[in-house]
Design a protein around this nucleic acid. Sequence first.
RNA 1: GCCGGGAUGGCGGAAUCGGUAGACGCAGGGGAUUUAAAAUCCCCCGGGGUAAUCCCCGUGUGGGUUCGAGUCCCACUCCCGGCACCA
Length: 888
Amino acid sequence: MEKDYNPRDIERRWQRFWEELKLYRAPEPPRRKYYVLEMFPYPSGKDLHMGHLKNYAIGDTVARVKMMEGYDILHPMGWDSFGLPAENAAIKFGVHPKEWTYSNIEGFRSQLKRLGISYDWDREFATSDPEYYRWTQRLFLLLYERGLAYRKGGWVNWCPKCKTVLANEQVIDGRCERCKTPVVKKKLTQWYFKITDYAERLLRDLDKLEGHWPESVIKQQRNWIGRSEGTEIVFMAEDLPIRVFTTRADTLFGVTFISVAPDGPVIDAILERVSPEVRELVEEYVQQALLTSPEERTESKTGVFTGLYATHPFTGESIPIYVADYVLGEYGTGAVMGVPAHDQRDYEFARRFNLPIKFVVFPPDDDESSLEEFFKAVCDEVSDGEEFSIEYRGRRFSCRIKGAYEGKGILKNSGEFTGLTSDEAIRRIGERLREMGLGGPTVSYRLRDWLVSRQRYWGAPIPMIHCERCGVVPVPEEELPVLLPEIENFQPEGRSPLENVPEFINTTCPKCGGPARRDPDTMDTFVDSSWYFLRFTDPHNDRQMFSPERANAWMPVDQYIGGAEHATKHLIYARFITKVLHDAGLLAYDEPFANLFTQGLVLMGFWWCKECNRRIDEEELYDVKVVGTQKVGYHDTPEGPHEVVWLVEMMSKSRGNVVPLGPFVEEYGADAARIAILFAAPPEQDFEWTDAIRRSAINFLNRVWRTFYALREAGVEARVEPDLSSDRELLVAVNRAIVGVREDLSRFKFNTAISKLMVLLGELKVGRYSHGNLGWAAQIFVRLLAPFAPHMAEELFHEFSMDSLLGEKTVFRTPLPEPLEGVVEEEESIGVQINGKTRGSITVPKGATEDEVLRMLREHPKLGKYLAGREIRRVIYVPGRLINVIVV
RNA sequence: GCCGGGAUGGCGGAAUCGGUAGACGCAGGGGAUUUAAAAUCCCCCGGGGUAAUCCCCGUGUGGGUUCGAGUCCCACUCCCGGCACCA
């Protein structure tokens, strides 16, 4: 054993050893399976940084613990390698997206290998491999066959300057990511997946995940799906039914107008019917509204009267119809009934267009607090003869109306429903409408269908053909994959780059054999990642997406680990696709991820100049001071000094604040990087990378090495069993570590698990205990260390011949140490309180009775005085914890 | 605005069920070793008072429940996420 810890040699040696042993190969079929998965990365560059590592370090620790618990592990890795950055790189550097992507993958893979993460590399794939996207295309066809993929004209984000469609993620604060131009809506026919068909199941099955997924992710998904029970009400505008959705059918008699969305489903029918005089005005407004970016809209309510009227289903009144952009075209029915008295948005709209305000819901007379709430919401100032008056306890109050009353109450002026409570009225009105055939109770969801078309090159082509004679025809399954052609120009032109490739676009119709065109769009990359965890169970299958036997043998993923930012994207899409495949009979299970852990971010502080839009080095700074809570300084530029601020943000290449892993691992080793990340903070929490974290990890590993070197020098040899007759303190310390580390591991508390190893390490001192028991303690320590610092543990395992001692080639085939029988602590220190105030502590035999403790307390040299000559009123004794004596 | 999460020493954090607040680490201080430095090892390290012994205060703020509150309840402040004209 060398005197100095040399991670480079050690880590290389054991990485090679594990590979030769095929330690990470997932057996087929598994006996006792455990599937650990970290969200696979987008290969965004050649180098990994500390931010990436956190995800993999957590996953690897889990995998190694489960390995030591005797499970057959599936722990795969691959690449989410389609996506926009590859095209941007092509435009910027002139490298083909494919070349750029695959060389990044090389970089990522070799760095992950150098970190010693326990992946089964035989199962690796990239979503941009034709052998993979062939099956992504098959998935698309499967959805199409099941009526879950459809085409519709939709309003998409459009940058008028770049003349291109933008993906949602390219729209930053309502502006184009690249040129900062406000984004507008453009109508395009696109492919959608009908995820809304699954809204109810996606919501309901969240109950199954309760306790296994972070509560916050479940809540975010519930909100995102946004189930809302309400009533659909049909207002007939002569022959045209205007359907509205409302949760407050009780306010139906307060309707004074109807608003339809400029991009809603009824707008075209309305435009057809408006009279020639106002047609131009209305059309202009609709155009205008669609060109206005959402952020510009929020200021004040706008709209236009269509000249049309609809009939109130109960009163028969004529209700004017407006087009207004505060109504969302994609939610509910794309039209609302305007009740200014009971909805603040309708109120604001009514004010602007001088529409009447009719109050129909009032708080009950005997409920003072809701009456107070009513006046607070509605009345500006009490004055006579103004717009609104209410009689309350025989007095008449008049006031100017300030806003809407959105609370519930008792109905007035509501025909046959007058006198009912809001909830009762909602029920009865719903029933009546149903009888009348003019709507009824219904459920609406916030969730929208999933737009999957992208006018992009670097993605999986949509396997559809457009034939003039036959319409939309799917590509026959045996012709998959529809290969991405090689092209040169990736400059966006407002349509897919594939449109410019005649040999791709022009094809023949599979149905009639006539000339036809391929769909020019590619799929959203979230489609790629919505089923990759299934492909890992059968990655080389060239006849199917995966074989149901293999998938069912490994699924569901037992532990999924990733960032919380995917709560309402990837994690919903993956659940949806899993359910579809379940319904198609390909999967036994309909939830993909049995347990989810969301790790926190790795943050990094840095100096940033907003004017230069770049990171500033410490050396360029001067006049650094603290203003309020903000650290500021200056740096010189040709234009004079610029202010520089200290920011703490997520590590990312674009901010230039990364700590690259390559050099770190070269200098300090993979084990140090892992320990640093895991010890710094609990893994679910964000933390800022600092040099102190690096130091603590390196100190610890060096201390481990020195301690074992000293044991070796002293001739200590590893032992399987302890000698229970001596070294009580050591036995207790080891047992405490075993119990503590196991407990912490089960709750992902890696930081405290490592701190318990540090405490145990402090006991492994030559001379303090017998060599036999030190050798046993060392052996236990190595096995507890293994999930966190696998290379170091494997080295010490062999250095102390634990392989032959325990009959296993590797520490990872030995079980995680079990708590010892019969090692109990004989004494314990408990807290002493007098009248509830902590006065010190006392050491008592374990299991001492209250009387024994009291006797010891009376005789105690320091604490005895508190009891001397006083009467004991009450004693609260919590064995092992404290004793509280109440005296007078 | 609505829905989550959080606030503990100089710093990262610990305290699992209401039971000795500050484990473990970083920084700092003192000592040993060394010609010296680095490295290493040992000790101290929330604040205030005190000669000592001890005493008082202390987990964002203000109240409450309890023998006992970082932990539970009510009100509030600030920070960090998510959603946001969803009818």
